[in-house]
């Protein structure tokens, strides 16, 4: 009988994973909403990320050869008709747009299955974790990431990135990564951890608004909203529902142009946890 029961359980799990995108076994599911209409491209989030996560400053030369260590980068795009039209190119209102890009914390991530030592794995929190001391630096994960959001330590940046008094600013809650280690945005896992720790000590669950990520905290226009998607009272859950972003699809089907939510490269079936809200144009 146990054989049949196992089979039925496996089968129902498989069916559920198809219908719900496999998100039912999480304790939490940390997600994010980024309103591109509010984003002014000020790069404050990127700076905050550098300060919070001990990111190395690599210098101009290495940055040009694509070895920048920015976990959060602000990408700039221009709409097609305006290319070459110099007069209007540099304003956001005329076809320009900014897009803060951090790790999308994919729920069926492409980086995880290729890791030969299981340093990249999925946590019960719905996070795409990277265990630094387990990483051997094969760089498969970075090559397999469609968003190009994993960064590799090609040098021992800790030697000269923080000269003597500056090393006092390093965050003790996160490792200073050595040469040969892959790293990426963690949704500020050290803040999640400490919030959960406090909640456990007080014998309660983590509530919405207990903590913020560094980028969310710094954003002057509150374009970034972070929270638990499984918590139905959280702001991020309400926003996902307001803009009808659905999990478990490869394309958001929307008739109303006011439903602006979309996820990056959904057609690749990576199931990102970050929703972007499209920029509203006057014209």
């Amino acid at each position: 009988m146990s054989l049949v029961r196992n089979f039925i359980e496996d089968w129902s799990r498989y069916r559920r994973s198809i219908n719900e995108g496999g998100f039912h076994e999480y304790e939490h599911m940390w997600g994010m909403v980024i309103d591109l209409d509010k984003c002014t491209g000020c790069n404050a989030c990127s700076v905050a990320c550098y300060a919070e996560n001990n990111l190395a400053v690599v210098g101009e030369e290495k940055f040009e050869s694509g070895q920048g260590m920015h976990w959060l980068r602000v990408e700039r795009y221009w709409d097609e008709p305006n290319i070459g039209n110099e007069r209007v190119r540099d304003t956001q209102e005329h076809g320009g747009s900014f897009m803060p890009m951090m790790c999308q914390q994919c729920n069926s991530a492409t980086c995880e299955p290729v890791c030969p030592v299981a340093a990249a794995y999925h946590t019960p929190d719905g996070l795409n974790a990277q265990i630094y001391n387990r990483c051997v630096g094969s760089r498969y994960c970075a090559n397999n990431c469609p968003y190009r959001l994993r960064y590799f330590n090609f040098y021992s940046y800790y030697e000269d990135s923080w000269p003597s008094p500056l090393d006092m600013q390093l965050n003790p809650d996160i490792t200073v990564r050595d040469k040969g280690v892959m790293e990426k945005c963690t949704f500020c896992v050290q803040r999640i951890r400490s919030a959960k720790n406090t909640a456990k000590m007080e014998n309660r669950e983590v509530a919405d608004g207990d903590f913020q990520t560094a980028c969310q905290q710094t954003c002057p226009t509150t374009a970034i909203v972070f929270g638990d998607l499984l918590d139905h009272d959280s702001e991020v859950h309400k926003l996902w529902h307001k803009f009808q972003t659905k999990l478990g699809t490869t394309k958001q089907k929307k008739d109303n142009p006011e439903l602006r939510g979309y996820r990056l490269y959904e057609q690749l079936n990576t199931e990102p946890s970050v929703t972007y809200l499209e920029r509203v144009r006057d014209v």
């Binding site: 946590t123 996070l127 265990i131 630094y132 001391n133 490792t175 896992v189």
Partner: peptide
């Protein structure tokens, strides 16, 4: 037994 709980 979650790696990320103890490894930072």
């Amino acid at each position: 037994f979650d790696c990320q709980k103890c490894h930072k």
